[in-house]
Design a binder for these strands. Structure first.
Length: 843
RNA sequence: GCCGGGAUGGCGGAAUUGGCAGACGCGCUGGACUUAGGAUCCAGUGCCCUAAAGGCGUGCAGGUUCAAGUCCUGUUCCCGGCACCA
């Protein structure tokens, strides 16, 4: 640093974030495995706070810094409040970018990944995040992924993992299959500009639908989750109650069209059947009818295009009559069978009964093609001839045979029961949620522990043979087939059943497996006998799961639904007791710059390393909490970071340049010693403690916490009482300085530790008690009461805080300005809100 | 179309229970100190009005109330999610 010549000797001891942070960073490094370790047999209450683990892309971005600053502040606050805190970190380190890096710069995925981890861990440490590194989890290492394989065997045993051939999502850029959850608006979640194709492939699936009902129902319990996330999951699961009804195909007694409907009560109004173009029966119809075939193929192409454009709902409805008829099992009526472009094969049964009188889409379609529109529902009261389509539920049946007169809701139940009794249908529930497509045709993932034997078919790897190690030195290309298939030493194995030759599964697991249960591993990260010890997991998860989980909303569906599924499975295995993994979830907003998401192409990326180098970790962290409430988007402004750095410099001057050291003062002082100025500061201090404590309790508006600290400092700076050398004044200054540092600790640990030391304190700051506020001292003695006349602010009067209504009114009416205003007018009413305001209504 | 969130000075935001709108910070203006200032300190800063006085002001239009950013009705725009879901 440049030599500064200054008259003021204090100038030589300026706030130098780099020097302070380097000093404490060095000290903390030396005890990295013990400093923030959770206690093993603690009598304290437990608190598990967790931030979503990062993908090791190479470097942290500001979104990470924000995420971890929130979690770290909370962890430190809970430590100070006497909790046994678990605050771990790990790496979601399988995934495609490692393979892409391998291709583009010829570095093996493992090496690339581990190097990135080392760099990001360095950044986290430099930022001063308090993680228990002894529990670090790295998902791409065999000591972790072997348990993925173990879980897979358990899922297979229970019938929750299965293999089937079906249409699956395929990303051409990733050259792999994707789960439904990984398709966003028809495109790949990693390649927003790449349309996902449909391919017919044989794949492993996990039966997430087994828990569909529970996954939906338990959302009600998650009142510590943002409503937004619960709604998104509800939509995703998409439960709908209805009935399946079989329509026989006329003239082909063994051919049946099963339709799904939520409105079986309208079935007497069904005047056609509509099939999705991909419906299996359609193939039979088109086999001998080239013209029909051409039209159907056109519809399939049209649907695909619309899906790719993301406006499937916008295409114009059209269809083609197949010339066949189906028989309505309720009344024996023959109705025509059509193929229509608005019927989706992947929802329900891919076939509907069309009731134009009571469905908007069917109505539009029937109008276009002149299909009969037959009303079978009328309102409960009043005019039966209302406008069609009449889609409301609140009606009763007409033209419906023996069900005439029933209310819709009643009819839905009775008619489903009738179908079941007569063997042509039943009440049923459909879900939008599909089973989890689980196989990936990629290298950098957990090998699926399965074998294919010519004699025994699909054979699981024996538990004792786990882990199936992912080989190194694999030739990776993004063309055709799983890279592992090109490694004979890997592929060629022995069948554990017959001892004959067997071929290994060469697909790997979706990386979302890794994050589905990693937070349980943190409770027992070094266990090599089991994924974790049940007792340890139950201690940290309790009945309701992780106390506080913090991350981006982009995982509202993906990670958060898979991990809920995994938890339910582990509970049913008897490994854990909790039904849900996370009690409270917080989704922080994005970090943006100049109104846009940070991206290389826009050139608006702010690098954490750069911020740390320019302003220090403390400033970068505090700014990321100060600039906006944590749940909202944060528009990054370097000048704002500077402002925070200025504030910290003033804090430093207030304490480090004028400290009252431990042992140099008497701890006792009485408020009466302080005088009005000191009392005012004391009041402000207790109000500040109150505000920040409240913010931590759940509101989490750390921006106002920081503002409160700034206000307190503004009050203190330049106050004459802090230059006094008298006993009580010294004791008071000592108290203010200590409480200030304690409140800084969650937000700016480096500066807080430095100042704590400057104050001569020996106790560990991390576990020093959070200051308490005294409501009596926080209370104002005198307050300004706004005086309104007819609701408009006209004056202010100063009264004692406890002033009665009468006193306030007396003072207000005696006020010169008020007197002049109400002169000659009639007072109609006076409203006095004690300690708040007075409003005089005059005419 | 359905669901969730939002709109407050030049900017980020505050107002926790219907009770002084604009805390705190940025930026800007003026001043002090200084060889210098992109350091520090002091003062000012919603808009209109020469100042005082006064008036206006929380997307828009109404309403309830002594009193509305906050409650009610309607409406516009922005962000996010879902979507021919039968």
């Amino acid at each position: 640093m440049q030599e500064v010549q200054s008259r003021d000797p204090r100038e030589e001891d300026r706030y130098d974030a780099q020097r302070i942070e380097a000093k404490w960073h060095e000290r903390w490094q030396q005890q990295e495995n013990s400093l923030y370790a959770a206690e093993a047999n603690s009598s304290k209450p437990k608190y598990y706070v967790l931030e979503m683990l990062p993908y090791p892309s190479g470097a942290l971005h500001m979104g990470h810094v924000r995420n971890y600053s929130i979690g770290d502040a909370l962890a430190r606050y809970m430590w100070m409040n006497g909790y046994n805190v678990l605050h771990p970190m790990g790496w979601d380190s399988f995934g495609l970018p490692a393979e892409n890096a391998a291709i583009s710069n010829n570095t093996p995925p493992r090496e690339w990944t581990l190097r990135n981890i080392a760099n990001m861990k360095r950044q986290m440490k430099r930022l001063g995040f308090a993680y228990d590194w002894s529990r670090e989890v790295t998902t791409c290492l065999p000591d972790y992924y072997r348990w993925n394989q173990w879980f897979f065997l358990k899922l297979y045993e229970k019938g929750l993992a299965y293999r089937k051939k079906s249409k699956v999502n395929w990303c051409p850029k990733c050259a792999t299959v994707l789960a439904n959850e990984q398709v966003v608006g028809g495109c790949c979640w990693r390649h927003e500009d790449t349309l996902v194709e449909q391919r017919e492939l044989e794949q492993w699936f996990l039966r997430t639908t087994h828990y569909a009902d529970e996954l939906l129902r338990d959302l009600e319990k998650l009142d510590g989750w943002p409503e937004k996330v619960r709604t998104m999951q509800r939509n995703w699961i998409g439960r709908s109650e209805g009935a399946m009804v079989d329509f026989k195909l006329d003239g082909a007694a063994d051919s049946v069209i099963t339709v799904f409907t939520t409105r079986v009560d309208t079935i007497y109004g069904a005047t056609s059947i509509q099939l999705a173009p991909q419906h299996p029966l359609v193939k039979d119809f088109t086999a001998k009818d080239a013209e029909l075939r051409a039209q159907v193929d056109g519809m399939i192409a049209e649907q695909r295009k619309a899906k790719e454009r993301g406006d499937l709902g916008e295409i114009e409805k059209h269809g083609v009559n197949t010339g066949r008829y189906a028989i309505n099992p309720y009344n024996g009526e023959k109705i025509p069978v059509w193929v229509a472009n608005y019927i989706l094969m992947d929802y329900g049964t891919g076939a509907i009964m069309s009731v134009p009188a009571h469905d908007d889409r069917d109505f539009e379609f029937a109008k276009k093609y002149g299909i009969e529109i037959r009303q079978v529902i009328v309102p409960l009261q009043g005019d039966a001839a209302q406008e069609l389509p009449f889609t409301a539920h609140g009606g009763k049946l007409t033209n419906s045979g023996l069900f005439d007169g029933l209310a819709c809701d009643d009819a839905i139940k009775k008619m489903a029961a009738y179908a079941e009794k007569n063997g042509f249908g039943k009440a049923t529930v459909t879900f939008r949620l599909k089973d989890w497509g689980f196989s990936r045709q990629r290298y950098w993932g957990t090998p699926i522990p399965m074998l294919y034997c010519e004699k025994d078919g699909i054979v699981p790897v024996a538990e004792k043979d786990l882990p199936v190690i992912l080989p190194d030195n694999v030739d990776i290309t993004l063309t055709g087939g799983s890279p592992l298939g090109r490694v004979p030493e890997f592929v060629n194995a022995t069948c554990p059943k017959c001892g004959g030759p067997a071929r290994r599964e060469t697909d790997t697991m979706d990386t979302f497996v890794d994050s589905s249960w990693y937070f349980y591993r943190y409770t027992d990260a070094n266990n090599n006998k089991a994924p974790f010890d049940s007792a340890k997991a139950s201690y940290w998860f309790g009945d309701r799961g992780i106390d506080q989980y913090i991350g981006g909303v982009e995982h509202a569906i993906l990670h958060l639904i898979y991990s809920r599924f995994w938890t339910k499975f582990m509970r049913d295995m008897g490994l854990i007791k909790n039904d849900e993994p996370v009690e409270r979830l917080f989704t922080q907003g994005m970090v943006i710059k100049d109104g846009a998401k940070m991206s290389k192409s826009l050139g608006n990326v702010v690098s954490p390393d750069d911020m740390v180098a320019r302003y220090g970790a403390d400033s970068a962290r505090m700014y990321s909490l100060f600039a906006a409430p944590p749940d909202r988007d944060l528009d990054w402004q370097d000048s704002g970071v500077e402002g925070v750095a200025r504030f910290l410099a003033r804090v430093y001057r207030f304490i480090a340049q004028n400290p009252v050291k431990a042992g140099t003062y008497s701890a006792e002082y009485s408020p009466n010693d302080l005088g009005p100025e000191g009392k005012k500061i004391q009041r402000k201090m207790h109000q500040t403690i109150w505000r920040i404590t409240e913010d931590f309790k759940g509101r989490w508006h750390f921006n106002t916490s920081v503002a409160a600290l700034m206000e307190l400092l503004n009050e203190c700076i330049g106050a004459p009482i802090f230059t006094s050398q008298e006993g009580p004044a010294m004791a008071f200054r000592a108290d203010v300085q200590r409480k200030f540092v304690l409140m800084l600790q969650p937000f700016v640990p480096y500066l807080a530790y430095e100042l704590w030391e400057r104050l001569g304190e020996q106790e560990s700051l991390l576990k020093a008690a959070w200051p308490t506020y005294d409501p009596a001292l926080a209370k104002e003695e005198e307050i300004e009461i706004p005086v309104q006349v007819n609701g408009k602010l006209r004056s202010l009067v100063v009264v004692p805080a406890e002033a009665t209504q009468d006193t306030i009114q007396e003072r207000a009416l005696a006020d010169e300005k008020i007197k002049a205003l109400i002169e000659g007018k009639q007072i109609i009413k006076v409203i006095v809100v004690p300690a708040k305001l007075i409003n005089i209504v005059v005419r």
